[in-house]
Design a protein around this nucleic acid. Structure first.
Lengths: 188, 188
DNA sequence: GTTAAAATAGAATGAACGTTCTATCTAAAA
DNA sequence: TTTTAGATAGAACGTTCATTCTATTTTAAC
């Protein structure tokens, strides 16, 4: 991947996340990333393709983040104040997700936001990309602790979505604390 | 309130909810509601003012819905399959909210969506309107069962946000079932 | 029935949109 | 050194945006 393309995707993700997909024009993206309009169209045939690539790369980073911090919390019990040790994978996922919120996601879930903005067409490629992402995330959670029932997996996903949404309007530290408390109550 | 203004706000809310705020132009709103452009500007000085009025009315309907179904579920224990009777206000709020999701909110929280689309300016009137709405909602939850701690109130709000978000990508009946299950586990 | 004010339809405005075009520049292959 | 292909900057295209203007019609008061 060329350095210009990296810059482009980096700037595009920041602008899309801060302003929304329809609110940001390609001119702002190329001017802020210092590349030419035709270079953008050389790498991506349309704005929609750029959006999809941004989503793919964010999913990759989010999943890497989860995997990294699940392991990290395994050896550092800081996901909760209890003495119960490193905790189950479910608890570590909750902690890793809250860390993601703190570091990168103070303005909601970019995937849901994309689905909301393009969701009037349920077969739109961007919408399908988001649906597939949410499916993969649920499967990741399930496979992290296969002994859990599908219902328990859905409950953890609900906690993750809830913490993301609530952190948009409430104090993140409180949201994190209560998310981990609820996860312990439900999955201990 | 004139009938034309009612039509305008009704159509605007549907279009905003289905397509997003930036994606919908005023021309589509006036043409779909069958009124003149200058009539819109006679009632609302700008698109932002129209958005705020749409949000105000949706909050009113949502709160009325909650109040109505909290009472309804008080005398009809259908919020859960348990035999525990009509349940606490917290449990009834969870059930009423899931009913709202089923009837009116399959595409996420319109308030959060507004905050996300206009949130680049934290002092934007639309953003402030959303912040105030979320504050009022939390106070409503707290006052519905004053014996609950602020932490418990935040936990229920997290469940509400989580069910709204998760219902965008998962089956609503499953989401409802697990939301009520979690509420019972946490607040029984 | 006349008059004053409000509401109407639809065009006009200037800016921004996604996309394409053009003409210049860069850099390796021959 | 010349050739060739791709990358570049930025203007141009046709459309749509929020907002304003104009000219006509409707409404209500006297």
């Amino acid at each position: 991947m060329s350095a210009k393309k990296e810059d482009l995707l980096h700037v595009a993700e920041i602008l899309f996340y801060n302003h929304g997909f329809h609110a940001i024009g390609l001119k702002k993206i190329v001017s802020e990333s210092g590349i030419a309009m035709m270079t953008l169209y050389n790498h991506f045939p349309s704005k929609d393709h750029l959006v999809i690539e941004v989503l793919k790369r964010r999913e990759e980073r989010y999943m890497d983040h989860l995997r990294f911090f699940i392991d990290f919390f395994k050896y550092n019990g800081e996901y909760a104040e209890s003495d119960s040790g490193p905790g189950s994978p479910f608890l570590r996922i909750a902690a890793a997700h809250c860390r993601w919120l703190n570091d990168y996601a103070a303005k909601g879930c970019l995937f849901l936001r994309a689905k909301e903005e393009y969701g009037a067409e349920p077969e739109h490629p961007i919408v399908l990309q988001v649906d597939e992402h949410k499916h993969r995330l649920r499967e990741f959670v399930q496979s992290a602790e296969p002994s859990r029932s599908p219902e328990e997996t859905l409950r953890l996903c609900l906690l993750l979505e809830g913490s993301t949404a609530l952190a948009e309007s409430e104090n993140l530290e409180q949201v994190t604390r209560e998310t981990l408390f609820m996860a312990e109550r439900l999955f201990a």
